[in-house]
Design a binder for these strands. Structure first.
Ligand SMILES: [Zn+2]
Ligand SMILES: [Zn+2]
Ligand SMILES: [Zn+2]
Ligand SMILES: [Zn+2]
Lengths: 150, 150
DNA sequence: TCTTGCTTCTCTAGTCGCTAGAGATTGTAG
DNA sequence: CTACAATCTCTAGCGACTAGAGAAGCAAGA
């Protein structure tokens, strides 16, 4: 049966080789069989699986959600309620991150706009940073990670 | 001269004790003198410095920018151009993060809205994740970290 | 003085999702 | 047979903390 090595698989999916190995290590992608020389030989289906992972990552889903989504994707007859729920949770998350960033944006924008561009002594940026009481709107006091990396 | 211990300092500034020690370790906050029993005894000025750090972190500045901003804050006669520049860079950063998150939001929103809530086989969420070609708008292929944590 | 209990100390390791590099081996084309 | 490319394992690093272990210091009450 046809198989694909890790390099071509990386090219096909846009996921780097070390990342593919990392996904295997954390159990997101099943360990493929090996060649006589101990190299990974993936079934062609791995392409689709990795593309799914990649797209979900690009859309900001975290690994744990992707793990669940992959499990669901393998059960075509099952209700899709859980998949939809995961997507909605992610949507809420994105929206709250946007809200927080918009608050930060407004605050930083004001700092920059209000500065008369003179000495540090009168710099609005430094002043506001030194005292949250100088903030116009109130931005949240910072919380959870704002989104996963990449 | 008056001094403050790490616990009260944490209470005053809202920064946790291990984080204060971490800031010392990375050279963001100078090492304070110690008591006979080896405990940190901060000058009262440390309160202001930590509040500055906290506020800047809450506004999403990264540690490196904060390091520079603190240095600038100590030079009242210097021009504030550099401080303003750092703030503008941060503003641009926030804005591009918002733009990216808005693209993700639109995409995920559509996935959820378009799903007929039936079997996984026809689940729009799973379908779209499996194939970026099904995306309506094009979201960026993921890139740099979206914002620093907390 | 002794004890109780809180605070602080140092040190290590874990978080998330990778990324980079060293050094060894395997595979392939000319 | 010789290059050279691809892959292997393993370790360590990123940013900005957070959590926990185990030891030591310190203040107040009995
Ligand atoms: Zn200024
Ligand atoms: Zn503020
Ligand atoms: Zn669905
Ligand atoms: Zn897409």
């Amino acid at each position: 049966m046809p198989a694909i090595a890790i390099g071509p698989l990386a090219d096909e999916t846009g996921i780097k080789i070390p990342t593919i190995r990392y996904y295997e290590e954390i159990g997101l992608l099943p360990s493929p069989p090996r060649s006589r020389g101990n190299r990974r030989l993936y079934p062609m289906a791995a392409i689709g699986r990795l593309r799914f992972i990649r797209h979900a990552r690009d859309l900001g889903f975290d690994i744990d959600a992707i793990r669940q989504l992959l499990t669901l994707a393998d059960q075509p007859d099952h209700s899709c309620a859980e998949a939809d729920r995961l997507a909605r949770i992610h949507l809420d998350d994105i929206e709250s991150k946007i809200a927080r960033l918009e608050a930060l944006r407004d605050e930083v924008r004001h700092m920059v706009a209000d500065c008369a561009q003179d000495r540090i002594r009168q710099c609005r940026v430094i002043e506001v940073l030194a005292d949250h009481g100088q903030c116009r709107h109130d931005h949240p006091p910072a919380s959870s990670p704002v989104i996963n990396n990449r």
